[in-house]
Design a protein around this nucleic acid. Structure first.
Lengths: 204, 204
DNA sequence: ATATGCTTGAAACGATCGTTTGACTGGGAG
DNA sequence: CTCCCAGTCAAACGATCGTTTCAAGCATAT
């Protein structure tokens, strides 16, 4: 069974650096020190290898999300946001430690439109989406559902961008290296997103 | 010279739907009704075709950005944000009309790490980054530079996510179909991001 | 010891890739 | 009319791709 793990770990490194399409099964099996046929034997296909690889990364993030949401003491917005954001910061640190390009790879997979990613995301975020949806709604009385959904999407956008690690010219890094400081900065911004005054739509 | 345009337009459609790696030059030239060799004749390589294609998309967006920034009447945060966001909404509408998958393609290119994209982005956003950096700093006295940069990155994140058009399960769409309404919602959120109270970093 | 079933190995499968070659075309310049 | 050159074309280049085949290896159960 060591072969299976060797393949997944080699694939993680190479997918992160060269992308899914840019990595051949021969690259992976060469780095893993196994035979090419082992991929299709253990995973069935290159696509299934990717799905298993992503599940292995995303599952613990959302497990921690649900734990923090269930274990929080208060019911205010900050505690819900904290339960949502902190697992991402933990994962960002852990994944980047494993491979500096890995968070970006996960981020880019998230915005892919393939049936494979629809399946992976649908399975991984079904429960999280539902539980946090009701938690946010409970913490924000007076905001209608689509408004909360819109603002939550903005929060997700920031997290996805955080993982993407885009280094725009002339811009400071999004992360500071300190998880507490990053959480504080993210909380400051995302709290103001969720609680912003409802805009009067200008009727031109 | 019609051949060159036919190639770029066919490539735009196919890159958007199947991605850069997922599109072969033969797919492109078949759809364009030209010979395979025409790509390397007119563009030099598949990579240069991509660079030209992206330049053709991004250049008018940033030109409109600089025009709006120079033409604004007020100096407050809303007018700067408007100059930053409105060209994106215009482009989003125009590109999606040309091809529903095109905005996502542009978005995903933005978070790529290849030398090609570093070159394209560096050239396209150099002036915009500088001009808007000073404009934001002037509109937000009292905020230090790295804090403004962090928050501006959050705004960029939302725009990138907007272009990505991610349809997360159970979430409403980010866009409403009305540019004015989208701008109002984006302004509401991004204004609150830029003007959020500065967080006291908890010293645990 | 013999048989069984999971795992690995080398090799080949058919297909597709980006790029290049060299001949052929047309129309404008001398 | 002749020359010339940008443009187009069919065809082939060498390389690489995901996947499959089938024999060989191995440990375990009988």
């Amino acid at each position: 069974m060591a072969t299976r793990d060797r393949i997944i770990e080699a694939a993680e490194v190479l997918f992160a650096v060269n992308g899914y399409d840019g990595t051949s099964l021969r690259d992976i099996t060469e780095q893993a020190g196994v035979n090419v046929a082992a991929v299709n034997y253990h995973f069935g296909s290159k696509e299934n290898l990717l799905a298993d690889l992503l599940d292995r990364i995303i599952t613990p993030i959302n497990e921690e999300r649900l734990e923090l949401l269930a274990a929080r003491a208060d019911d205010d917005i900050d505690s819900v946001l904290r339960a949502f954001l902190l697992p991402d910061l933990h994962a960002l640190e852990k994944l980047a430690g494993r491979n500096p390009d890995l968070p970006r790879f996960v981020s880019r997979m998230y915005s892919e439109n393939s049936p494979l990613m629809h399946r992976v995301i649908g399975a991984q975020f079904a429960e999280v989406g539902q539980r946090f949806g009701t938690a946010f709604a409970a913490s924000l009385p007076g905001h209608d559902e689509t408004e909360i959904s819109f603002r939550l999407s903005c929060v997700v956008a920031i997290v996805v961008y955080l993982f993407a690690g885009v280094q725009a010219p002339g811009m400071a890094q999004l992360t500071t290296g300190s998880t507490e400081q990053d959480l504080a900065r993210l909380l400051s911004v995302t709290r103001s997103i969720m609680t912003a005054a409802i805009e009067e739509v200008a009727t031109v």
